[in-house]
Design a protein around this nucleic acid. Structure first.
Lengths: 217, 217
DNA sequence: AGCCAGTGTGACTGAGCAGTCACTATCCGG
DNA sequence: CCGGATAGTGACTGCTCAGTCACACTGGCT
């Protein structure tokens, strides 16, 4: 939890701090991210950071929570009805919207799923992992109830496969097409162009089509 | 490249060193792996490591290369004919065999695909990444030629999806079923039991079935 | 016995890190 | 203009790390 001082911070100062921290944690995984680098870049004293947050873990957790808030906003506009495949495509479209905004926030979302040596982050990671898996599992169960997913599929298992296609698979397909990778992208962050977003939606449709056929009765 | 001294090492000493290094790099990603910990555990002087290898990168690269040699041996027994799905299942079975041996070596294989801040490892990573992708792409093209994969699928794109299912997806499904995760597994490495291997083959069959249906004409 | 190449050693260097704390500066209400 | 609260500071501690190097040891050969 951030300290009260952080909330009271002048908006522009706060914004500059968040920007620098976001950049650091987007570029580097938790263990390699450096509080020293953040303050050096901002030209402020290291002690200031510890006026705002208890420690590095606290700072990272705040970023993850803030990412959650931003994503929830995007997802708010997302329909919760329709066929399984429509909902899946919609969920994915919300993801695209995130990359079209500030890709660094999207990266924080991925970082929250990365394993760490820091035990206080492990619980958080498992929670997020489980949330994704159970969202997809529920979706597949709905699909079975509505006859869009065949009954001999184990939703708990298939959820992992779906996650594999939509995260690892889709991302690596995307970056292969863009001729860069996740690292390069975040090293020089920019919002993706509409053209690229279209390519991504195209890929997402291919992915969903593969899953639709693969899981159909 | 290891130094000549490493090759001349007495077999048991060499084996003990490799075991300790393997353990360290299986448990920790490259940046967090510690040469100091390796020597502390073995009770040898730090300088010794630098008689065997140029530096930490050199040591890691040797482990990755050694893993490649071991996997090549396993893959040697793998049939290069049959339908796409048979070949895919066979490739996966070779992977299972690896986890049934020493799971730490399997982990090194995954480590070689992880991004690093170390530029000298980036080239290696891209190479491995590309090798996997192009193996799968070639497989899908063969499938199209033989009418097992529908023609409106882009093999270059679908290869990434297949990779997503068979790596991320299958692994996370496996560990969900085993009630542990990759980290816990390597922290207490043991060969998987025949029962677990059967579960893994069952999952692999489900994954291949999903892909078969998803990509079929 | 004497030699020496090959092997092993561990204190040391220089670097980076998270986190602390006595101190200073700034702001705001009275 | 004063005084207390709040915010900011940066040198410092204590830690871990990769990599070095002058030195010591060992075993085989002459």
């Amino acid at each position: 939890m951030p300290r009260p001082t952080f909330d009271r911070l002048a908006p522009d100062k706060r914004a500059r701090f968040v920007d620098a921290a976001l950049d650091e944690f987007a570029r580097h995984r938790f263990a390699e991210a450096s509080v020293s680098r953040i303050v050096a870049r901002l030209g402020i004293a290291k002690g200031s950071v510890y006026q705002y947050f208890d420690d590095k873990v606290d700072l990272f957790r705040w970023l993850v929570a803030e990412h959650g808030r931003r994503r929830a906003e995007l997802a708010g506009a997302m329909p919760a009805e329709g066929t399984v495949w429509e909902r899946l495509a919609a969920a994915y479209r919300a993801g695209v919207a995130e990359w079209q905004g500030d890709p660094r926030w999207a990266r924080i979302g991925l970082r929250s799923l990365e394993p760490t040596d820091e035990p206080r982050l492990e619980a958080l990671r498992r929670e997020h992992q489980a949330a994704v898996a159970s969202f997809l599992e529920a979706l597949l169960r709905q699909g079975q109830a509505e006859g869009q997913v065949r009954d001999d599929v184990d939703p708990a298992v298939a959820a992992h496969f779906v996650q594999g296609v939509l995260t690892t698979g889709l991302l690596s397909a995307l970056f292969a097409r863009l001729d860069t990778d996740l690292e390069g992208w975040v090293a020089a962050p920019r919002a993706i162009t509409e053209r690229e977003a279209a390519a991504l939606r195209d890929l997402a449709d291919q992915a969903v089509e593969l899953l639709r056929r693969g899981l159909a009765p």
